[in-house]
Design a protein around this nucleic acid. Structure first.
Lengths: 113, 113
DNA sequence: CTGGGTGTTCAACGAGGATCGAACACCCGG
DNA sequence: CCGGGTGTTCGATCCTCGTTGAACACCCAG
């Protein structure tokens, strides 16, 4: 566990709460991914190393507020994991876990078309 | 091609138009399936032999009008195929074709949870 | 401590879509 | 020809959800 800690030692902010994959239904998963903005987020996130992309660093045509909502949705569906790193909140795709729960779904989304 | 024709020789009704699977996007597919009613339709349909279930024969808590809309949505997404058989419109799941286009997705929905 | 950057929350708005009832079209059995 | 059964379409309603702007909270660099 040495080397990846960085700046996240003490967290005084509201810690993001994540979903237990087992509690996520297929419907919720599909509904979460069946949105153009969220799909772009997922794809863009997949093409970057983990924990490198802050929420605001995505190329989507919506304001901060909407963006926050979308990330909350993805979090609730168990698609992404978030961690506070200083002032910004960085993301990672829960690839393995999500794929174990919904085999092929993420791959399907990432394949694009 | 002999033996499965049945009653559908001449069709004077409005023939149901089906989607070309290649033109269906992942988003449309997910959006079509991310609905409780439509999901029940698909599951129930999967547990019956092809061409045996008419639209009205499904156990869903909506009226005829809504039902018609839902079937149109599933049709547009390439999930189901419909054929007029006398007065009623019977359905079949496009399992192989849909699975070829979106591998694992249908299986995921049918698995339930 | 102050200021800029980042994200969340809130209230409000608007668009999309799910739903219903009713009207219509069609097919079949009397 | 008529009537019941089956589906589609239309108009209207309702509600969910995506979106915004503003206010707030937090962190870091000066």
């Amino acid at each position: 566990m040495v080397g990846t800690e960085g700046t996240q030692g003490a967290r005084h902010r509201a810690a993001p709460v994540h979903a237990r994959l087992a509690d996520v239904t297929v419907q919720e998963a599909l509904a979460a991914l069946a949105d153009p903005v969220r799909m772009r987020l997922v794809r863009e996130l997949a093409s970057s190393p983990e924990w490198t992309r802050a929420c605001g660093s995505f190329d989507v045509p919506v304001g901060k507020a909407a963006l926050s909502h979308h990330f909350a949705a993805l979090r609730a569906a168990g698609v992404v994991e978030q961690r506070d790193e200083g002032a910004r909140r960085v993301n990672r795709l829960r690839r393995a876990e999500f794929d174990a729960r919904f085999p092929g779904l993420l791959e399907l989304v990432l394949r694009g078309d």
